[in-house]
Amino acid sequence: MTFKLIINGKTLKGETTTEAVDAATAEKVFKQYFNDNGIDGEWTYDDATKTFTITE
């Protein structure tokens, strides 16, 4: 399955996707992406659209 990440950061904005077997696996991938890029904020997940959103 394809999961999308929408980034609404102070310095970084955009979208990316990842292929994962489930939302929990995608969450781990995206959290690592947050850490690697110094993004910290509030994030949500919409199961209907398989979209994670992080807002700094």
Rank of each mutant, 00 (worst) to 15 (best):
M1A: 08
A24M: 09
G38V: 14
I7F: 13
D40Y: 14
K28E: 09
K28D: 06
A23D: 02
G38M: 11
T53Y: 09
F52A: 00
T49P: 00
G14H: 13
T49W: 03
T55W: 11
V29A: 07
D22R: 01
A23L: 05
N8V: 13
E19H: 12
G9W: 13
G14M: 15
D46I: 04
T49E: 05
T2A: 05
V21H: 09
E19M: 14
T17N: 04
T25L: 04
L12I: 12
E15C: 15
T51D: 01
A20M: 02
K10L: 13
T16S: 08
L12M: 12
K13L: 06
Q32Y: 05
A24V: 10
M1K: 08
I39Y: 08
A24W: 06
T2W: 10
T51R: 01
E56W: 13
T55R: 04
G38D: 09
G14L: 15
T49H: 04
E19P: 03
W43S: 01
G41W: 15
G41I: 11
D22W: 01
D46T: 03
K10V: 13
D47E: 12
N8A: 07
K4W: 10
V21G: 06
L5Q: 01
E27S: 06
K4D: 03
F52N: 00
L5K: 01
W43N: 00
D46M: 03
I54Q: 01
K31C: 07
T2V: 13
A20P: 01
K31L: 09
E15F: 13
E15T: 11
D40Q: 14
T25Q: 12
E42L: 13
Y33R: 07
Y33F: 13
M1Y: 15
V29K: 09
D47N: 06
Y45E: 00
E56S: 07
Y45I: 00
E15P: 06
F52D: 00
E56Y: 12
T2I: 14
K31T: 05
T44K: 08
T17S: 11
E15K: 07
D40C: 13
Y45D: 00
N35W: 12
G14D: 08
F52Q: 00
D22A: 01
E56R: 03
G38C: 12
E27G: 07
L5M: 05
A24D: 07
W43K: 00
G38S: 08
A20R: 01
T51P: 00
T44F: 10
T11S: 09
I39K: 04
N8F: 12
I54N: 01
F34N: 13
F34Q: 15
Q32E: 10
K4F: 13
T49C: 03
F3S: 02
T49R: 05
T44H: 10
K13S: 11
T25S: 11
D46Y: 02
A48K: 08
T2L: 10
K10P: 10
Q32G: 07
A24K: 10
M1S: 10
T17R: 07
E56D: 07
D22M: 02
Q32F: 06
K50D: 01
K10M: 11
N8T: 07
G41L: 08
A23N: 03
T17M: 07
M1V: 11
V29N: 08
A23M: 09
N35D: 14
K10T: 11
K28Q: 11
W43R: 01
T25R: 06
T49D: 04
K31Y: 05
G14P: 04
F3R: 02
